[in-house]
Each structure stands twice: as structure tokens, then as C-alpha cells.
Write a protein that binds this DNA or RNA. Structure first.
Lengths: 264, 264
DNA sequence: GCATATCCGG
DNA sequence: CCGGATATGC
């Protein structure tokens, strides 16, 4: 059994104790972090080392973005795609297990895309759409069982947001983004593991804004974080959980972790 | 018996619990704070109210400087001298006790004066010297028993700094500042209460830089904070303490509080 | 709201 | 090193 987790941590240095608590409690074999907000040489390697996560692929930068995949199992870093072609650290791809026959794990932080859902007035939105198109193009070439996880910054389904109607024009849930993400999904036939375990007609969220003073009471969440498996891999998933309780920890990330077990 | 304290708190909002702990433990009748770093309307009045310091004279500004005198005993605000004539909040004068026959308490935050001890290249140093000259001029007019306390940003005596020789050209201990402060002292005949209780041949500090990682081990302190009494008042002082232990509290101010008891 | 960045002041 | 300030991103 191999357990894989993903978490947009919103500064790994500021929330090191929370990462440690999560790892101690959940003991995943692999953890994919997004928004580590730190350059590789300042990544808290020692803390992960202590926790047994001695294999790491860290693709960071100063202050913004950045992803890291840490693992108890041997890992080989295979790729750092720059789907925006602007140098931002938003992806790292690894293989866990034997070379050529292990599991590919793609860790991605898709751009948020700014406020205005119009590429003419908001270039960030255009970059997000381009990012998704390039991901779709890449997905076409994926020919091995893979898992792609991370903060996709898109809530594709109606019940992935607290109000479908209210969010149709809000970046993360606009039809143009959802369609671009769906093209990416189709390009490889990715299976949305979250929705394998929570039916599509039930609300399911992974992110709640800091701006709502009582996130639980208002529950204006979105499902922005995802774990998608190749068609061959998806049937091997044995359990998937979204750890909502972490949103209630002291000084939490605005995202919660997702955890999936696989019988490989 | 009336107990008066002074403390450069380096942001009163950030260190409210420390102020509360200090007040609970020491129970001074009057506390003079410097560097409150807050405008008057955002001063944490309620917390002081709860602690019984229901009489307050707050002269604050946004972000920088600012002084406040809080008291359990009735207090009348009498003056806000602007010895720099630039609008900075660096002084508040009050009378504690009956009008015209109470104790005058002057709370002052003398400018730090920048890095270069040369008014030609560093205007802040010139402003500091001018501030001291204007204080001396004012002191000439003081004709009632008074106590002047605060962060003077000058360590006048040889053993007010960790190394007299090393600091002779460092702002806070240069001869020109020490002479200006001495002119101010002479102008009213102020008595340096700190040195009434710790002989001048012993090291005595009230401030240790944040930049020294182990302030206690290196002990590179300076005595920048003072309580000076009018000649008639000084003999009524019954005890004076510098609370060095506060420098070891969590996230401390770089200054420690001074406390004097008076038998009035 | 929260967490960077950079700047200024001490 | 540690506070503020402002700006930007999410």
C-alpha cells in the first residue's frame, strides 16, 4: 500500500509544525506540497529528514509559488515543466519506486488567474488558460500510469463550489476554465479521485478563503485541490480523504490536505 | 507611597500581554511608555482600563514614536512639547495628584539620532542635539518638583555602555551628546535616580540590541532609559530598580522597564 | 485575511 | 534583529 497526499501549504516555513503534525498523524509515503514560498536552499530539509522524508524533489523560488514532493520511498526527479514559460516554479514530476516501472507523480500548482475572467483586460487569466492548454498538450504524451495532484485553482463541477450560480463569473469556476481543464482531463483520461469517493451531487471543498471570518459557519468553500489518476491507476485507489479538520488548526493554510491510498 | 515606571515598549499593541504582566507583577501607580507606535484612537485603552489604569494621557502617531502615561491615580495632561518642531509625538507631561500641588511627570522619547554622529552629513543627529538644547532651555523654566523619565537615547556615563572606548564615536555615547544632555541636567539640577542606586563605577544597562543573538552572554548593553528627579523630589525616592528579567520574556522589547518608589 | 517583498528606522 | 509602512498576489 502506498499513501500519497497533496497540500497547498501557503508557506512551508511558516507552517512547519502543521506539516509535521500532518505527517505524524497520517504517515503518507509521499507528500506533494504547493506554495512553499521558499527557494530550494532555504527549504526546511532537516525537519523532513527527521520525519523520515529523506527523498525530496524541491522546485522552489523566493517568496511566491514553489512545489515540493517529499517521500519516504526512493524517488527520482524527472521533470520540471514550465507551462507558462516564465520561470515560475509550478511543477515537479517524480518517479517513486524502481526506475522505469515505478509510479509517476506530477505535482502542480496551476496559476490562480487574477480577478477578472477576461484575458483581454487581465493577462493573468490568459496565462492560466494557456497553462491549461499546454498541460492538455502534454497530457496527450503521457503513456505511463501517472498520478497528477496539486492545487489546480479550478473547481470544475457544480458542487465543487458553495454556489454554482454565484461563482459562474468568478475566476476558478468560469465555464472557459472548466472547459480548458476538461480538455486536459480528456487528453489522458484522468480520473478525478475526489469525485470517486464523494458523489458529484454532494458539496465537496478543499479551500475556504481567509476572508470569511467563520469559514465553517459560512462554508463558502471551493474544491480547488485535486488528485487525478491515469485510467489504469485509478482502480488501484483504495481510499481518498479530504482532511477538513486541518482548516481548524492554529494559523492554518486556506487549503486542506487530500490523501489517497493505492494498492500497487 | 507612589510608584512610577518607565518602559520603551517598542509597539504597545504587539506587547500588550507583556505590559499586562508587568503591571500585574509590579503594580506601579503610573507607567510611562515610549515608542507605543500607534495613533491615539488605536491605543489599547480597554486593556489598561481593565488593569485599573483608568487615567491616561496618550500622545501617539501612526507607526513611529509615540508616548503614553497611564495611571491608577487621577492625572491631568498639561503639555505636549514638540522639541523638534516637526510634529513627532515624543513628549507628554502630566500632573498626578491635586491640581497645582501634585507631582509633575514628564514622559519623553528623545530622538535616536541616526548612525553618523555628524550633523553635517546626518541631519537626524543635528535634530537630536537641537532637541536636547531645547529641553535644556525648557528645564530652565521648571519651577516645581518634577520627574522626567523615558528613553533619552543617550548613555552619559562611562559605565552606561559596555565599552566606553568602543562607543565614543557611536551615536548615544558621543561626547557632544553627553555634553548636551549634561547641560539639560544642570539647567534644572535633575538627579539621575538610576545612578543613586547603582554606583557610577558599575555597569548598568537598560537596553540591549536585538542584533546580538545572545544579549545576556555578550552583554553589550547601554543605559539609554532614565528617571531624573528635581532636587527637591530626589530625596523622596525610596527604591529604584531596572527589571533586567523582562529582556528574557518572549518576543521582548529591546528596552527594560525602570521602577522607582517615592514617599510623598 | 494572510503571507510574501522592499524600505525605513532603531 | 525586529518593528512599522506600502505594495502585490491569492
Amino acid at each position: 500500500m502506498v499513501t500519497v497526499a497533496t497540500w497547498n501549504i501557503n508557506s512551508v516555513r511558516l507552517r512547519l509544525d502543521q506539516v509535521e503534525r500532518f505527517l505524524a498523524e497520517q504517515q503518507p509515503d509521499v507528500l506533494c506540497l504547493q506554495e512553499i514560498k521558499v527557494a530550494e536552499h532555504l527549504f526546511p530539509h532537516a525537519a523532513f529528514e527527521r520525519m523520515g522524508y529523506v527523498h525530496r524533489a524541491v522546485h522552489g523560488q523566493k517568496g511566491y509559488h514553489g512545489v515540493a514532493t517529499v517521500s519516504k520511498l526512493p524517488l527520482t526527479e524527472l521533470s520540471r515543466h514550465d507551462w507558462q514559460d516564465n520561470g515560475e516554479a509550478r511543477h515537479v514530476g517524480v518517479e517513486v519506486g524502481g526506475a522505469g516501472k515505478g509510479l509517476l507523480i506530477e505535482n502542480v500548482y496551476i496559476p490562480a488567474g487574477g480577478d477578472e475572467p477576461d484575458r483581454e483586460v487581465n493577462p493573468k487569466f490568459g496565462q492560466k488558460l494557456d497553462f491549461l492548454e499546454r498541460m492538455a498538450h502534454w497530457a496527450d504524451t503521457v503513456d505511463r500510469p501517472s498520478l497528477i495532484v496539486g492545487d489546480f485553482n479550478v473547481a470544475p463541477l457544480e458542487h465543487d463550489v458553495w454556489s454554482h450560480k454565484a461563482l459562474l463569473k468568478v475566476v476558478s469556476h468560469t465555464p472557459v476554465e472548466v472547459e480548458a481543464l476538461e480538455r486536459f482531463r480528456i487528453a489522458h483520461g484522468w480520473v478525478d479521485l475526489g469525485r470517486e469517493y464523494v458523489p458529484a451531487d454532494q458539496k465537496s471543498f478543499s479551500w475556504w478563503s481567509y476572508r470569511n471570518k467563520d469559514w465553517k459557519a459560512s462554508n463558502r468553500g471551493r474544491r480547488l485541490d485535486h488528485m487525478w489518476a491515469s485510467p489504469e491507476l485509478a482502480p488501484q485507489a483504495r481510499g481518498h480523504r479530504a482532511l477538513t479538520e486541518c482548516r481548524d488548526w492554529e494559523r492554518p493554510s486556506d487549503h486542506i490536505p487530500l490523501v489517497t491510498r493505492f494498492e500497487l
